[in-house]
């Protein structure tokens, strides 16, 4: 998709792919045939630039025809290069960072106030934790005991212009969330059983919102993309695409 559209952001799409795979294979309570089913869990992608792996996930789950993925980023396509709520299964359009968690807090609060049991999951990037609006929301969620809210940080350690450590260090990130009164777990964000185990018992602590810090690799699964800032921007050339697909398919098999 990224290569066809000559688009960017494959690195961040790959870093969260394992998280999406587990979320959509048994964690999220959803009905692809009824994307707006009242009791569904709400999943919000706040790092909207990484939308390709979510579009692909939704297509594989049959929220829409898989052939539509070919239109990604093309003239007239609804598959915008930042996640779009016009696509079945997508709750919220993002693209400007720092919007998903406040919105998720509103959804979680709505569920609380109306006595509903569904949960809200928000996928955040590490870079977007520079945004003040996220810290407003991180203060807000425990204040209102939003134990039906799960924030997942795709902690791949690389942001737009450099490493997180060099641009705006987040560590000790788990301690920060704990100090803000969240329940926190840290896992390898590519270990499917660890992801599943962490998300199978929610909330992490009673009466608190949950934060899953998933340590990931930007560009995971393709050796020349892994941990390489260039793949926040570059679009694979035909030979790179072939090699990337070969590596991913080998790994999958």
């Amino acid at each position: 998709m990224v290569a066809r559209a000559n688009a960017s952001h494959i690195g961040g799409a790959l870093s969260m792919a394992d998280l999406l795979a587990v979320l959509y294979s048994g964690v999220l309570n959803i009905r692809p045939e009824d994307p707006v089913w009242d009791s569904r869990d709400r999943f919000i992608l706040s790092k909207g630039h990484s939308c390709t792996s979510l579009y692909a996930t939704l297509a594989l789950k049959k929220f829409f025809q898989i052939e539509e993925l070919e239109s990604y980023g093309k003239d007239g396509s609804r598959l915008m290069s930042h996640i779009s709520h016009h696509v079945p299964g997508v709750e919220f359009s993002t693209g400007s960072l720092g919007h998903g968690l406040p919105f998720g807090c509103g959804k979680a609060l709505a569920a609380k106030r109306s006595g509903k049991n569904w949960r809200t999951f928000v996928m955040l990037s590490d870079g977007e934790l520079d945004e003040g609006s996220n810290w407003e929301a991180i203060l807000f969620a425990p204040q209102h005991k939003l134990d039906n809210l799960v924030a997942i940080v795709d902690y791949n350690k690389i942001q737009s212009l450099g490493s997180v450590a060099d641009v705006m260090e987040l560590d000790p990130l788990a301690d920060k969330f704990r100090a803000f009164r969240w329940g926190v777990k840290e896992i390898d964000g590519h270990d499917h059983s660890a992801i599943h185990e962490a998300l199978s018992t929610l909330p992490f602590e009673p009466g608190k919102p949950s934060c899953l810090i998933a340590h990931t690799l930007k560009g995971k699964g393709v050796d020349f993309m892994e941990n390489n800032l260039q793949w926040h921007y570059s679009s694979p050339k035909p030979d790179q695409l072939a090699e990337a697909l070969r590596q991913l398919e080998t790994e999958a098999n």
């Binding site: 406040p102 919105f103 509103g106 609060l109 106030r113 109306s114």
Partner: peptide, 17 residues
């Protein structure tokens, strides 16, 4: 609280429900 960005995001979330 004194946090208008979050306030408006929360409002949108509530409104979406």
């Amino acid at each position: 609280g004194v946090a208008e960005q979050n306030m408006t995001g929360v409002a949108a979330g509530l409104a979406s429900e």
